[in-house]
Write a protein that binds this DNA or RNA. Structure first.
Lengths: 247, 247
DNA sequence: TGGCGCAGATTGTTGAACAACGTGTTGCGC
DNA sequence: GCGCAACACGTTGTTCAACAATCTGCGCCA
């Protein structure tokens, strides 16, 4: 997977982030322990900015420019780069710098393969009375509200919260960590496509349905439904990639 | 400075690594592309040393001491720390430094849970004609040779090669990456116990058996056998932990 | 047109310095 | 003696300036 410069989405060119603006960010370097939110570390801040689309996939990140931008030293920034590269959010090529990862078709295939493997396995073995079921329910409700409000970004985060809660059914920190990384990478793929409505809008009902099946008929039945759901989602993403000429 | 007096062997237990010895390591910072081996980056070098038991689990790693030891700057070392911490090999507590991760019982449980989930799932869906089957066979043979030679470290690496080849059956880079990290963490647990013969010796025959079942009866049957195998391995590790008073 | 070499820009790394934080110790009061 | 606050020390966090190593783009020449 050489770093073919993902010039994918047209959005890449527009973002002139290199205007002389410097942001003074309050970085504590100590995790604030909050359950969610962007955290206090530079890596978390960068991660949030990437997820927000401020640095589109494929964008090259200059050390000096970004260091000035965030009012940190190059060395500190490089440490954050290593963390994010380890999470698959950044691609690091020695002597050629880092750029925001730009998932290719092969990556999308792999991500969905692992997601299917992971999520269906968890759901099939899960206990219907697990506390995370409430979180799944809350996420479904939040997604519904967001849809009603036309807040597609909110739909996206609620959708991700649903699947994260689903993986939490396993009570496995490592499974959850792996899934978080997958979700972050997948979000990059969504940014490549750049059409949140098509991507997330159709699946809020499916989330609810999976949850209902889980409550009524148990894990294995819900897992089968989830597998179809994920495959359809994969097809949607791949279709969008093909339409963009990234096949 | 290029002496490199290789005092490796036997240094494991006492581990007074803070004698003024400085090792000049040839670090290229560009991955040498080799399929195995310790690679050229500082992070890879550190990782190999940790795996070799030179820095035992729980050991605190002083920045200035290690930087001198490897003849690198503190900043460079800190970048390597971030990489390894992202892989779960090091624990990083802000303002308190990094130490070699020391898996607790809960970690062992989680690692084996994920391994079962991952490896059995892969094996159940795998194709009997997959090229990695040859690698599995080679690993089994290598393990047999190592047992015959009494080379328990060799048995351990061959065992790990077997399971890595098994996961390769999925053709999924991300699954493979996750498994590599799990294996690295598990190796730390083995270092905590420190009895390679008991841990690896018993399982070479089981590897061969799983492989034969896979070839003869297909993936699902082999997966069932593998699950029992992993559960027994987990029990062995947990038993050793309990015996050490780490329960 | 196509390859060559050079200059500029960027990354990789170093060393020193200081700030911020944790930790262990000292000394005091009780 | 015991508990507790102030202090000194060591370590980590971060910055800065500099240089080496490497990549990239451009002009040049055949």
């Amino acid at each position: 997977m050489n770093s073919a410069p993902g010039r994918a989405a047209g959005a890449a060119s527009g973002g002139t982030y290199d205007d002389g603006v410097t942001e003074a960010a309050a970085l504590t370097s100590v995790p604030d322990g909050g359950p969610d939110g962007e955290g206090g570390t530079l890596a978390d801040l960068l991660s949030a900015r990437i997820a927000a689309g401020e640095f589109p996939p494929g964008r090259r990140l200059s050390e000096t420019a970004l260091a000035q931008r965030f009012s940190v030293s190059r060395n500190t920034l490089r440490e954050a780069f290593r963390v994010l590269a380890g999470q698959g959010l950044l691609e690091h090529v020695p002597h050629r710098g880092v750029s925001v990862a730009s998932p290719r078709v092969g990556d999308v295939l792999d991500i969905y393969r692992v997601r299917r493997h992971l999520e269906t396995g968890v759901l099939a073995r899960a206990d219907v009375g697990h506390p995370s079921v409430d979180r799944m329910r809350a996420a479904v409700a939040a997604a519904g509200d967001a849809v009603a409000a036309g807040d597609w970004a909110g739909v996206g985060t609620a959708n991700m919260a649903f699947h994260e809660a689903l993986v939490s059914l396993s009570d496995s920190p490592r499974l959850l960590r792996t899934h978080r990384q997958l979700a972050a990478e997948l979000r990059l793929a969504f940014l490549v496509i750049g059409d949140p409505q098509t991507l997330h809008g159709r699946f809020v009902a499916r989330n609810r349905s999976v949850l209902d099946t889980f409550a009524a008929d148990g894990g294995p039945a819900a897992a089968r439904e989830l597998e179809d759901y994920l495959t359809e989602s994969e097809r949607t993403v791949l279709g969008a990639y093909a339409r963009l000429g990234l096949g």
